Amino acid sequence: MTTDRLARTSTFAPTRRHLLGLGLALAGTAALNLAPGLRLLRPAEAAAPDVAQKIADHFSAVKTMTGEFVQFGPKGEQTGGKFFLERPGKIRFNYDGASDFRVISDGQSVVILNKKLRTSDLYPLSKTPLKLLLDDRIDLSGGKVTGIKQEDDLTTIQLADKQVFGNSKITMMFDPKTYELRQWTITDAQGKDTTVMIFNTREGVNFAADTFKIDYTANRELNAKKSNR
């Protein structure tokens, strides 16, 4: 993601669809579109290429990470904030802005919180592309790698798993020398992309005990009030 693009894109308050695109693109019926420039892998290449598995193993070894992120919606809309990651299964995105958006995974569920509007949407982590990012070990077997592109400054790996998130897909971009994750794109079942770029990252950090806590009682109460309106 270039500095020019960052400068051109206006800041926006993310909608529920944009938040879903961050890593929660759910199952649908549309066909997958291969990202431009990626080499589609044939069935005979079902085993993950060596470079892809090496990168996945390196990223899997990162047990905790924090940093900043910028998110681009399907029309180039931009927002950002800070993220916190802990394997297995835990991540938190704190969005900038007055709306006070949060996306939190506690290892079992993912909640999308809008404190300003007092909404709380809950999903099973196992049915989202975030599961592939947050597993204790990123497993690329079983034909999950559907495309790969190697360049001097970037290695791009596309993953899909119909059993996990239907016709959505995740495309991850790594530094080919350090194997560090630079960004990922979630393509939903309608072919719409949401890209997340991460930067200023730190690894091996410690988090407060409640960083990834989901308040299930508050979730039930908010949704009960919503259903009674």
Rank of each mutant, 00 (worst) to 15 (best):
M1H: 13
M1V: 13
T2R: 11
T2F: 08
R8V: 01
R16I: 09
H18P: 06
H18C: 05
G21K: 02
G23R: 08
T29R: 14
A30Q: 15
A31D: 15
N33F: 10
L34Y: 04
D50H: 11
D50C: 09
A52D: 11
Q53R: 05
V62K: 05
K63M: 10
T64Y: 10
T66H: 11
Q71W: 06
Q71V: 08
T79F: 06
G81V: 03
G89M: 08
K90T: 00
D96R: 08
G97R: 12
S105I: 06
D106W: 06
D106K: 08
Q108T: 12
I112M: 00
L113T: 14
K116N: 07
T119M: 07
S120M: 15
L122P: 01
Y123E: 02
D135Q: 04
D139I: 03
K144P: 01
I148N: 04
K149Y: 02
D152W: 09
T155D: 03
K169M: 10
F174D: 05
K177Y: 12
R182A: 01
I186L: 00
A189T: 11
G191L: 03
G191E: 05
K192Y: 13
D193E: 05
R202K: 12
V205C: 01
D210E: 08
F212C: 05
Y216A: 09
Y216M: 12
T217F: 07
N219R: 10
E221H: 04
S227F: 09
N228E: 13
